[in-house]
Design a protein around this nucleic acid. Structure first.
Length: 266
DNA sequence: TAAAATGTTGGGTA
DNA sequence: ATACCCAACATTTT
């Protein structure tokens, strides 16, 4: 799935095209895409809603409506497009929301893992999420304290959305490489100095991802170019950009994990 | 063919 | 309670 920078990119692109539009109807083409409420309620409640704002929380796209919030999680393969309302549905289109001005917002999701919520209060959905890495609450001091409250390996911990929200497999590997920390390093062994470097690395790599409009890999091209600047992700066997050592790939917590065995010692 | 792919969640185990 | 492993979700690609 898209991670924080990819969702941020999509939110920024959609925002000017969506704000001010009114939702005319919703065509739910694969019902399990809808997490809440029921399809019937969804169609009734979303009709006539005006789009007031478009944003992002963690990896959720957030669309504020007149009296509800529409939340979309793209998971592994979800994507969003604005199309003409006369365009024929494409393969894997799961939800098509018809808008004023002969436009529609299309949710296409090959693997069907993506989910949509229409809720009055989004805090209920977001309550388990850890802090936003680009917010002011995410300080080096907070990170050090949080790391030491756990005894977990860095890679799965940073991937854990209840610990910190927004990082996925790519940006976690990239951040750990920048910080010169091994993915299997125990969280409560990180020094204050190392925490400061990791804190900065996380923010740097996320901002870099946003600046490049996110990463486009596999068959899902969203316009981003960050994939051309990976330091370790998907670079197994290729030379480390820092020391030339071959990048290693291991599996940690069921996820492919890439790192430089020389720069990132355990 | 089997494995793996930007993710999350729930169940079982120690 | 905490941490970790596995399966499930569903499809496509290598």
């Amino acid at each position: 799935m898209p991670e924080l920078p990819e969702v941020e990119t999509i939110a920024r692109k959609l925002k000017p095209e969506l704000i001010g539009r009114t939702i005319l109807s919703a065509d739910l083409r694969w019902s399990r895409t809808l997490a809440a409420p029921s399809p019937k309620k969804f169609r009734e409640q979303i009709k006539g809603q005006k789009i007031l704002d478009v944003g992002r929380r963690a990896k959720y796209l957030t669309i504020r409506l007149s009296s509800f919030h529409l939340l979309i999680h793209l998971r592994m393969s979800g994507d969003l497009h604005i199309k003409d309302s006369t365009d024929q549905p494409e393969k894997h289109d799961r939800l098509i929301i018809k808008l004023s001005g002969n436009h529609s917002l299309t949710f296409n999701d090959t693997r069907k893992f993506g989910r949509v919520w229409l809720v009055a209060d989004p805090t209920e959905i977001f309550k388990t999420l850890g802090p936003e890495p680009l917010s002011k609450e995410f300080t080096s001091h907070w990170l050090h304290s949080a790391l030491h409250k756990k005894h977990r390996r860095l890679k799965p911990l940073l991937l854990d959305q209840t610990f910190l929200s927004g990082l996925g497999n790519i940006y976690t590997d990239e951040a750990l490489n920048i910080a010169k920390l091994h993915p299997l390093r125990e969280s409560d062994s990180i020094t204050v100095k190392q925490t400061e470097v990791l804190h900065e690395a996380i923010r740097t790599v996320l901002k870099e991802g946003i600046r490049r409009n996110g990463a486009s890999i596999d068959w899902v091209y969203r316009g981003g170019e960050f994939q051309n600047y990976f330091r370790v992700y998907d670079r197994e066997g290729e030379p480390c950009r820092n020391c030339g050592t071959k990048i290693k790939r291991i599996t940690v917590g069921q996820r492919g994990t890439h790192y430089c065995p020389r720069c990132q010692r355990l």
